[in-house]
Amino acid sequence: MSSLYLVIISYDIAHPRRLNRVAKVLETAGVRIQKSVFECGLTPDALLALRLRLRRLIDPAEDHILITPVCSRCRPHIHWQGKLPDVSAAPYWII
């Protein structure tokens, strides 16, 4: 059984068509927690595949995607302020 890596993925995409494509890919991989931010629990292979897929969708001269790992020791220290995102449609729960 492979362990899941928790990553936070944020992006800034210049062109609306590329933006929509990136957002659709990330919606299948994780949960949107803000407009351009996703939380994803992925196996190492799935994370690598996602990185390669995203790389093919962007224009590196204009766009950027930030993939930030969250270690298991850091996860309990994440705190929300304000309205929590709706995770009812999440394909998984991270506890």
Rank of each mutant, 00 (worst) to 15 (best):
M1I: 12
S2G: 12
S3Q: 15
L4V: 13
Y5V: 13
Y5I: 14
V7T: 12
V7N: 09
I9H: 02
I9K: 00
I9N: 04
Y11H: 06
Y11C: 01
D12V: 00
I13R: 00
H15T: 06
H15L: 06
P16M: 07
R17S: 13
R17G: 07
L19Y: 15
L19P: 00
L19W: 13
N20S: 15
N20I: 01
V22G: 08
V22E: 02
A23T: 12
A23C: 14
A23P: 04
A23Q: 13
K24V: 06
K24Y: 12
L26I: 03
T28N: 15
A29W: 06
A29G: 02
A29N: 06
V31L: 13
V31E: 10
R32P: 03
R32I: 03
I33F: 09
I33Y: 06
I33W: 11
Q34R: 07
Q34K: 10
Q34L: 06
K35Q: 12
K35A: 09
K35N: 15
S36F: 01
S36L: 00
S36Q: 03
S36Y: 04
F38E: 05
F38V: 03
F38Y: 15
F38L: 02
F38W: 10
C40Q: 03
G41W: 14
G41R: 13
G41E: 14
G41V: 01
T43P: 01
P44C: 02
D45V: 07
D45N: 09
A46S: 08
L47A: 00
L48D: 03
L48I: 00
A49L: 05
A49K: 13
L50Q: 08
L50K: 05
L50M: 04
L50D: 08
R51C: 04
R53W: 05
L54Q: 04
R55Q: 12
R55N: 11
R56W: 08
L57T: 08
P60T: 06
A61G: 13
A61F: 08
A61L: 14
E62Q: 14
H64Y: 09
L66D: 05
L66G: 00
L66K: 07
I67H: 01
I67N: 11
I67C: 03
T68K: 10
T68C: 11
P69H: 04
P69K: 02
V70C: 00
V70E: 07
C71E: 08
R73D: 14
R75S: 11
R75Y: 15
H77I: 05
H77Y: 07
H77A: 08
I78P: 10
I78V: 15
I78W: 13
H79R: 13
H79K: 09
G82H: 04
K83I: 09
P85W: 04
P85F: 05
D86E: 05
D86N: 14
D86Y: 09
V87S: 11
S88N: 12
S88E: 09
S88F: 02
A89T: 03
A90E: 04
A90F: 00
A90M: 02
A90H: 04
P91L: 05
P91N: 07
I94P: 01
I94W: 13
I94V: 08
I95P: 15
I95Q: 12
I95N: 11
I95H: 13
I95A: 15
